[in-house]
C-alpha cells in the first residue's frame, strides 16, 4: 500500500481540462519530482492534491495511522492536518509577522489550547508557549535562521523567504512535503545549497517529498523517481536516467514532429 494514492484525478475548468486522468503514487520517505513544460498543469495538480481546489473526478487517498483517508472532499486545512504540507510558487509568507510567529502559526493545529487558559494566562499556557518556542527555534536552527527570530518575514532576503516557507511547512509535522518550484529565482550557488537541504530534510524528518522544479540539475540530482506531465496528462514515469532517455519527454521539452 502506498503512502499517497492518486487515481484518475481530473480537473476541468469550463471546457479546458487542466489535469486529466492522473494516476500516481508516493511511497514512504521517497523523493519524487514532477516536471513538465510551462502550462502542463503541475501547479493545478498540486492544488488538487492539497485540497485548494476540488477535483472534477478521481480520488486522492492517504495512508494514516487511522487507516486510509480519502482527501478529495476535505478542506485545505483538513488536508494539512492529515499530514500534507506545501510551499508556494509565489512565496506566501505571513509577511507582517515575525519569523518566529510564522513558524508558530504552523504549529498551532498540533497544539490545541483551551480559550479559558489562554485568556486567564494559566501556568499551562506559559508552559506550552515555552515548549512551542523551543521547538520552533530548534527547527529554524537546522535552516540557519535562529538569529532572525524577530525579523519581519517581509524583510528577509529572497532566498531566506523561500527557506522560511519550507520551515513553516515542516512545522506542521507533515508526512508529505510538497515543494512548488523551491529553486525559482535562485542563483546556482543557492540552488546547490537547496539541493543539500532537501536531501537533509528527507533524511532527518523521514518524510516524503514531492517537488515541482524547472531546474533540471536539481531534479536529476535529488529525485529518486520522476513524473512528467504534459497537457495535463502523465506522459512518463521513471528514474532520472530513464527519463533522460525517454523519447516522449525529449519531444515534449524540445518539440518536434510526431
Amino acid at each position: 500500500m502506498s503512502l499517497l494514492d492518486v487515481k484518475d484525478l481530473t480537473k476541468n475548468f469550463g471546457g479546458l481540462t487542466a489535469v486529466s486522468g492522473v494516476t500516481m503514487h508516493l511511497e514512504d520517505n521517497e523523493l519524487v519530482a514532477l516536471i513538465g513544460p510551462n502550462g502542463a498543469g503541475k501547479t493545478t495538480l498540486f492544488n488538487l492534491l492539497t485540497g485548494v481546489i476540488p477535483p472534477s473526478e478521481g480520488t486522492v487517498s492517504l495512508q494514516t495511522d487511522q487507516g486510509l483517508q480519502v482527501l478529495n472532499k476535505k478542506k485545505p486545512y483538513q488536508v494539512a492536518q492529515a499530514g500534507l504540507a506545501r510551499t508556494f510558487q509565489n512565496i506566501r509568507l505571513f509577511k507582517d509577522l515575525s519569523v518566529l510567529d510564522n513558524v508558530l502559526i504552523a504549529m498551532t493545529a498540533k497544539h490545541k489550547e483551551s480559550f479559558v487558559s489562554s485568556i486567564l494566562r494559566l501556568p499551562s499556557y506559559y508552559k506550552k508557549e515555552v515548549e512551542m518556542r523551543e521547538e520552533a527555534i530548534e527547527l529554524l536552527k537546522i535552516f540557519d535562521m535562529q538569529d532572525k527570530l524577530d525579523n519581519l518575514a517581509r524583510n528577509l532576503p529572497y532566498g531566506e523567504q523561500r527557506r522560511l516557507e519550507i520551515v513553516r511547512a515542516l512545522a506542521t509535522k507533515p508526512k508529505i512535503l510538497f515543494l512548488d518550484e523551491p529553486a525559482a529565482g535562485m542563483n546556482p550557488e543557492e540552488t546547490a545549497d537547496l539541493t543539500r537541504l532537501i536531501r537533509q530534510i528527507q533524511n532527518e524528518f523521514h518524510i516524503t517529498v514531492l517537488l515541482i522544479e524547472h531546474d533540471m540539475s536539481l531534479v536529476m540530482n535529488v529525485a529518486e523517481r520522476i513524473y512528467v506531465l504534459e497537457y495535463g496528462q502523465l506522459i512518463a514515469e521513471g528514474t532520472p536516467a530513464e527519463i533522460q532517455k525517454n523519447e516522449r519527454v525529449i519531444k515534449a521539452y524540445l518539440g518536434g514532429e510526431s
Binding site: V52, A80, T108
Partner: peptide, 29 residues
C-alpha cells in the same frame, strides 16, 4: 489582548496575512 497574544490570536492574524497560506498550514480560517 490575551486573546490576540495567544495561539488562537496567532491563527487569527494568519488569516489577515494570507488566507490561502493559513489554510494550508492547517488553520481553519
Amino acid at each position: 489582548v490575551n486573546f490576540i497574544h495567544s495561539r488562537d490570536g496567532r491563527a487569527v492574524m494568519s488569516v489577515r496575512e494570507d488566507e490561502i497560506a493559513a489554510e494550508s498550514m492547517g488553520v481553519n480560517i
